[in-house]
């Protein structure tokens, strides 16, 4: 494992901690898209179907458990916890699942390394993760007042993806034969989706003004 990969994982973990902090201590999920959170839960469930029969390392195993547990608990909080649920911007969070899930599923059935259930589900999880942020970005654009924690959450998620890109560049040059087209293209698309957000996030940080995305 290289430093970019570790930094990427830690950034991903931080993003989840920031979101849990907001939900657990402030009891608010204002500005957070439940659709995106449910898609992430689906991403982890379909990606880690092999959690008990393919062992790579203690680190990977524990991280998989953390990602599964945290994503499911966030969905539970937003749906079932009364105070948290009240703060949910349901009327603004209108992105439709089927526009994301169905194309990803079809693509995974067509473009994969092996036509088996687990491999197709794993490939589906990569495609789904690439676009799962879309409902959140749409919601951000509609939210007049993006609070700091929400802004930080999305920024950390984007940073995690950028660090994974660096990790792949590093591995390409240090590991002979390291080529993973499906992972790379899905990862690149995912990172590019954050470009616009990054631009306005850094601008607001530089000018020390509240983050607001143009309509």
């Amino acid at each position: 494992m290289n430093v970019f990969r570790l930094a990427g994982d830690m950034t991903h973990l931080s993003s989840i901690l920031v979101l849990l902090l907001k939900i657990h201590t402030i009891k608010s999920c204002a500005g957070i898209s439940l659709k995106t959170q449910e898609l992430y839960a689906l991403v982890f469930i379909t990606r880690y179907l092999d959690i008990f029969d393919r062992f790579t390392s203690i680190y990977n195993f524990l991280m998989k458990l953390i990602f599964l547990g945290s994503s499911l608990s966030i969905v539970w909080y937003m749906r079932r916890h009364k105070a948290v649920h009240r703060s949910y911007d349901k009327d603004q969070d209108t992105f439709r699942y089927q526009f994301i899930v169905l194309p990803c599923l079809l693509l995974a059935l067509v473009i994969n390394h092996k036509l088996t259930f687990k491999e197709v589900m794993w490939t589906f999880s990569l495609y789904l993760e690439a676009v799962a942020i879309l409902p959140q970005l749409v919601l951000l654009q509609r939210t007049r007042n993006i609070d700091n924690l929400t802004g930080q959450y999305v920024f950390l998620l984007g940073a995690y993806r950028a660090l994974y890109l660096l990790n792949w560049v590093y591995r390409y040059f240090t590991e002979p034969g390291f080529v993973r087209w499906i992972t790379w293209i899905a990862g690149l698309v995912q990172t590019l989706l954050y470009a616009d957000f990054f631009y306005y996030y850094i601008l607001s940080w530089k000018n020390n003004v509240k983050l607001e995305l143009p309509a």
Partner: peptide, 10 residues
């Protein structure tokens, strides 16, 4: 196996 993509990342 070789025809599956390797899975050592999260």
């Amino acid at each position: 196996t070789a025809d599956e993509e390797a899975k050592d990342e999260l």
